[in-house]
Design a protein around this nucleic acid. Structure first.
Lengths: 132, 132
DNA sequence: GTAATTTATTTAGCTAGGTAAATAATTGGA
DNA sequence: TCCAATTATTTACCTAGCTAAATAAATTAC
């Protein structure tokens, strides 16, 4: 196995586990947080808008949004087009958001503190270049 | 969300999907192939040796090895220490290995062809550095 | 205006990661 | 020696990707 690929896999798994660990305090998992983050950034979105934005498949988003609704982070309403469901943050989510976000930012800074600004840019550029 | 993290996540998902696509021809998934690869490299191993080597949790390996056994790629035998199971490749796996491996090598080369040797080294080094 | 096609979402079922706890065999200590 | 602790594996059950196919609503073509 190409050592670069192996490293990407390991790195990503470690990152997800650490992220989940930070989010544990708020009873969230990383994919759930990602959706809350996107909704906070973009405002109410349809399911299709979410999965296209995140570049994952529709059923994955359906499931995670359903879970977020159960947990009270999100509400779903049928749109004018009755096929689509519009997803929006609840007040619970809006209230909790800044606190969670600051935890995440702190974590992210901790994670990349081994790299200076230029190295981060370089890493992003190299990853982009690999996207053959 | 930190753009670097976001990119790592996307990259890894794209990579796994493409890998699975290559392996489809052989009725394998990437995690299954990884275990076959390790066994080919290291010879017969206990489950514990495998999950420590791959740096994943034991139940994940138990499940995947069980599936590989069902599919006839691998056999399990109890060791001298009756707690441990020793996993080994079947003749089917040994026969198919070179063919699959060459597909994978070709795929890997295709994937990194946007990067020259020094860029690959650089990328590995930067990822390593992030491992805070 | 109705039938065919497209689009949005969901359901079912697979792989693959994780944790927590159960079981069985081995090892160590009093 | 025998009981306690450790170790190897498994089971049960989460999250989170994926594909394929079902359903329902909207759009298009005739």
């Amino acid at each position: 196995m190409n050592p670069l690929f192996h490293m990407l896999f390991q790195q990503q798994r470690v990152l997800i586990n650490k992220l989940n660990d930070v989010l544990k305090e708020y009873d969230l998992f990383h994919a759930q947080w990602t959706i809350l983050f996107v909704l906070h950034e973009q405002g109410p979105m349809t399911l299709t808008a979410i999965w296209k934005y995140l570049n994952v498949e529709a059923p994955t988003v359906t499931r995670t949004v359903a879970r977020l609704e159960q947990l009270g982070w999100v509400k779903r309403e049928t749109g004018f087009d009755k096929r689509e469901k519009i997803v929006d943050l609840t007040t619970k989510a809006l209230t909790a958001f800044p606190v969670i976000e600051s935890s995440i930012i702190q974590f992210e800074e901790e994670m990349v503190k081994g790299l200076n600004e230029s190295e981060q840019q370089q890493l992003i550029a190299l990853l982009q270049k690999m996207k053959g």
